[in-house]
C-alpha cells in the first residue's frame, strides 16, 4: 500500500524561460521587461481606441439582430442565441472598460448579467432587454462616456425602472 505522503509530488523545473530571456540562472539577478517597451505597448493600446466606435456599433448591431429573431427560433437555437448574446455583451463590456467608457460598460455588464436569467416565455423580459438596447444606442450615438452626468443618470434610471417593474 502506498503511503499518504507518496500521493503528493513536487516538481521543480529548470527555468528555461529565464534562460531564453537571456539571464543566467545562477547569478541571482532578476530581469525586467524594458520600461520603454512597456510605454510603447501602452501607446498601441491607446491608439486602438479609434477602433472603438465601429467595433461597438457592430456588436450592438449583432445583439439587436439576434434579439429580433430569437423568438422565432427553435428552443435549442434559442439557448445558443442567448449564450451568444451573453458573450457579445461581455465583449462590449471588455472594450468599454479598456477605454473608460463607463456608461456603456454599465449597460453592457447589466445586459450580460441579465442574459443569464432571461426567460423568453416571459414577455416582460423582452421589455428589459429592449430597454438595454435603447439606452446603449443612445449612449453610442451621443458619444456618452461618463456614467456620472445627469444624462447618464437618466439613462441608467430607464433600465433600473424596467428591471424593477418587469423582473
Amino acid at each position: 500500500m502506498r503511503s499518504r505522503k507518496s500521493d503528493i509530488e513536487i516538481f521543480h523545473r529548470i527555468n528555461k524561460l529565464k534562460k531564453k530571456a537571456g539571464l543566467s540562472l545562477t547569478s541571482g539577478k532578476k530581469g525586467v521587461v524594458d520600461p520603454n517597451a512597456v510605454a510603447r505597448a501602452q501607446e498601441t493600446i491607446d491608439e486602438k481606441e479609434r477602433e472603438y466606435p465601429p467595433t461597438v456599433k457592430e456588436l450592438i448591431g449583432q445583439i439587436t439582430t439576434i434579439w429580433k429573431s430569437i423568438k422565432d427560433m427553435p428552443e435549442e437555437e434559442q439557448k445558443q442565441a442567448l449564450e451568444t448574446l451573453y458573450h457579445l455583451s461581455n465583449n462590449i463590456k471588455d472594450i468599454t472598460e479598456t477605454y473608460d467608457h463607463n456608461l456603456m460598460h454599465h449597460f453592457a455588464l447589466s445586459l450580460r448579467d441579465f442574459c443569464e436569467i432571461i426567460d423568453l416565455g416571459k414577455p416582460q423580459h423582452s421589455v428589459i432587454v429592449q430597454a438595454h438596447l435603447d439606452v446603449m444606442l443612445v449612449t453610442f450615438e451621443e458619444k456618452l462616456k461618463s456614467d456620472e452626468t445627469a444624462q447618464a443618470e437618466e439613462l441608467k434610471n430607464i433600465v433600473k425602472i424596467a428591471i424593477e417593474k418587469y423582473s
Binding site: I8, I10, F11, K18, Q42
Partner: peptide, 25 residues
C-alpha cells in the same frame, strides 16, 4: 482586465522570474 501594457508586462515578468514548483496531488 482591462488589459494594460503594465499589467501584461508584470505578469510575463512574474512567469519568468518566479516560476512555482508544480504539485501533483
Amino acid at each position: 482586465k482591462p488589459v494594460s501594457a503594465d499589467k501584461l508586462a508584470k505578469r510575463i515578468q512574474h512567469v519568468i522570474d518566479n516560476p512555482r514548483p508544480y504539485i501533483r496531488s
